[in-house]
Design a protein around this nucleic acid. Structure first.
Lengths: 201, 201
DNA sequence: GCGAACTTTCAGAATCTTCTGAAAGCGATT
DNA sequence: AATCGCTTTCAGAAGATTCTGAAAGTTCGC
């Protein structure tokens, strides 16, 4: 949770509210920086490296494709870090490389997914795969014995606990699948859900 | 993801399937160890320290209250670690201290919640608080300007993105609250939900 | 109030993670 | 096929986290 030196020196921040020349640029920069820092902090809580989350935040909030060097300078991180980080983001499917039409500029540009629904579903799916699915795969192996085998009282108690856990996981897995298959229908469905729950409990 | 030395030496594992004297104890121990190691690994992915998750796993799977010293020996971790770890688990509400009736034993015993539904809801609530709620609290502060203030085109674009994110978060927050209020009714509700979704999409 | 039995705390050690920067790699252009 | 402009890789440095163990603290019974 320790903080890093501020991502950007923002050289002209001091005179931003009264100056007329480029006031909006400064204001936006400040707001962007705040978003980037916050998203980076949240990233660490979501099991994502801070710098990965920061690069994503920058690309998302900038909205336009940026070159590696621009990212480097803006966040003051090393060339190597930017490269590794962009690779990860591309694997996650959150960032795409694009090639600008300008033929004299050979650099790769990088663009973040701008649709927030897609963004969230991507993150959710990745986290589920990493943090939840292994439970269903591995818990069975934590039983003492095959189902149906005769066994001691204490063994039974152990297996019952594992089975309860496993059943619960499968239930939530089903629920998650239902929701994620629904795509944007979730919005309408959610309202129905709360009506349904109201009548159930 | 690096592995630690096996939590427990399990000295007699070699002869466990043919021996009759205490075969069940050995088998259970092995199964427990496997569960503890796995739960510890999952813990690291859930943002929980490995040793905290391991102690929780041990108490959960043992089912009965254990004293700090027993935990220490079983997981071969230090006295200090066990103490810190139990404190955290108690704060999370996953473990309770209990006092045995035996008056000659002054040690505190520690017992894990055994109801898997309570366990999951506790974990979910804690994670939501930590990983999700801050989004709703802080995102607003990442806007360029107050709502309704007149502003440049680029400022507008920035604020629109923040607002989209915020709205999405609020939507999921509402959904999560609906679900968590439903308690066990969720099981019945979930079936209705999938019917509902089927008819929506 | 004192001593025995446990528990908690915390500075420093050990370990794990992340970042840097120089060197190697790659591919388009001449 | 050599050069140039850019990207990737990776060994080692820097930094963050987690664990240990000894000392201080607490609580209970006498």
């Amino acid at each position: 949770m320790a903080s890093r030196p501020a991502a950007l020196p923002t050289p002209t921040t001091a005179r931003n509210s009264t100056n007329d020349a480029l006031p909006a640029i400064d204001e936006i920069r400040t707001a962007q920086d705040r978003f980037i820092e916050f998203w980076g902090e949240m990233g660490t809580r979501w099991g994502v490296q801070r710098s990965v989350a920061e690069v994503h935040a920058l690309l998302f909030i900038a909205g336009e494709p940026l070159a590696a060097e621009e990212i480097m300078e803006r966040l003051s991180i090393s060339r190597g870090s930017v490269s590794t980080t962009l690779k990860q983001l591309a694997e996650w499917g959150l960032v795409q490389r694009v090639r600008l039409k300008d033929r004299s500029d050979r650099r790769e540009y990088h663009q973040a997914e701008q649709d927030v629904w897609k963004l969230f579903y991507t993150i959710l799916r990745a986290r589920k795969r990493r943090e939840f699915d292994p439970l269903i795969e591995e818990l069975g192996g934590c039983r003492v014995a095959q189902k149906g085998t005769r066994k001691s009282e204490r063994s039974k108690q152990h297996d019952v606990k594992i089975d309860e856990l496993l059943e619960l996981c499968k239930f939530f897995d089903g629920l998650a699948n239902t929701i994620s298959k629904s795509g944007k229908g979730i919005e309408r469905a959610s309202k129905l859900l709360s009506r349904v729950l109201g009548s159930v409990s």
